[in-house]
Design a binder for these strands. Structure first.
Lengths: 241, 241
DNA sequence: AGGTGTGAAGGATTTCACAGCC
DNA sequence: GGCTGTGAAATCCTTCACACCT
């Protein structure tokens, strides 16, 4: 058996994600979309929505919507649909965002500072509460949008993680540093990593990694656009992702 | 039949991507990973690699690697493995990155400027050649890393797209602007969109969208980390993505 | 021995279609 | 009439296992 306790992490998709009882990984991904759309309904004052409507707005079949939700319980009302408020609360509970997660960011380069300033996390249950960088030149720089906080040196990682009870970290460092930094983060108690470095991280089984490789995403676009160029026949639906 | 020619685009995953003859969408995603890893081998001076090795480095089975590649042709040599250089060339050809794509960026905010400065695109076949913004205050600002170029007003979109033969655009604008901007881009000839706005874009069938929603990615992490908290039994592989 | 390519088997996910409820 | 929840069927994707090559 070559079952290392240390194992690999790939990009974009859960290659070996521990899957809970019978819930398909894609269903969990769609849950986030449902939530996002439901929040649109709230600002539109819509109190209730059917699987058909929700599916149409998201490019998914109505049966898919119902199945996905049914994996987690019975949230709907026959003849009526789903109560928007209630469903939002249920999905947040499922995703674990019915509370606020303190998030740590490593890497105060261009991408890192953009992420630190990103307005979208608040209200979604995530708050970047600390920023670290290996580069002494960046340490001490104050963080816009985090009044009073400054970029900290890596030496302060462990105490900060413990003090602020941080479980999730965003990795926005150059590829060469990503694995060693990940190792330190994990040793300091981080259980989930959002990795922007274009490498495959190797992490223990108890740690989750979600990878965002921008070049990889553009490659997928390139592939699809190249296909559409001289197609056998044009599809009837939009490419999505 | 309610088959609108206009249809929806979702996040993360190809909900309705036109799929070519028998190639699973996940296989195409992995192609990008294979390519990335093969480039690592090149800098390590490795001339040849087996599906077993490549798979191990990426957290994928060897059979999966062989299957994925076999969808596109016969690239390997029994008893030897795959020639690294040759396979890189073949995959680039398949993904359409055996040439350089001119890419346009809309949105010169925090994220947009970070993307414009991102070093990783060059060498992957992508070059950001123009940056646009609706905000008059941002227009005219010069772009670091694109000497001589400045942020242009939306009015110059169409001529620039035509002049530079641009097919792919990155959307880094606020959610409210994303759909209208996408519409203009498409009307001006863009065929592929990398969308960072947290909304589902509706686009014609001939246009491809790849979506990157940062909050959504964190939600997936939140879900997995929450699971690992009080698990029935700890898995034996790392969560990946 | 070591390795690819691939049909066949096995699993996972999606879609169908319908009973039951409002 | 409209809508959910859900077994069953269909489809899609991954893994097995082996013929064949070097």
């Amino acid at each position: 058996m070559d079952t290392d306790p240390q194992l690999v992490s790939t990009t974009g998709d859960a290659a070996g994600t521990e899957r809970i009882v019978g819930v398909p990984t894609p269903a969990v991904r769609r849950l986030s979309l449902y939530l996002r759309q439901l929040e649109v309904y709230v600002s539109a004052g819509k109190a209730t929505v059917s699987s058909k409507q929700l599916g149409k707005d998201l490019g998914v079949t109505d049966a898919q919507v119902r199945k996905d939700l049914a994996y987690f319980g019975q949230f709907g009302h026959p003849g009526v649909g789903y109560r928007v408020d209630g469903l939002i609360a249920r999905i947040r509970r499922i995703l674990g965002t019915d509370r606020v997660w303190n998030v740590l960011l490593v890497g105060a380069g261009h991408l890192g500072t953009a992420l630190a300033a990103y307005r979208g996390f608040a209200g979604k249950g995530f708050q970047i509460v600390a920023v670290f960088d290996q580069d002494a030149a960046k340490v001490g720089v104050s963080i816009v949008s985090l009044p009073g906080r400054r970029v900290q040196p890596m030496s302060e990682l462990q105490p900060t993680i413990e003090e602020l009870d941080i479980r999730i970290a965003i990795l926005a460092v150059p590829a060469e540093h990503a694995q060693p930094v990940a190792d330190v983060l994990i040793a300091s108690g981080i259980r989930g990593l959002l990795n922007f470095a274009p490498i495959t991280l190797t992490v223990p089984a108890a740690v989750s990694v979600v990878a965002v490789d921008l070049s990889t995403q553009l490659e997928q676009l390139s592939y699809r656009v190249s296909l559409n160029r001289m197609p056998s026949r044009s599809g009837e639906r939009a490419a999505t992702s």
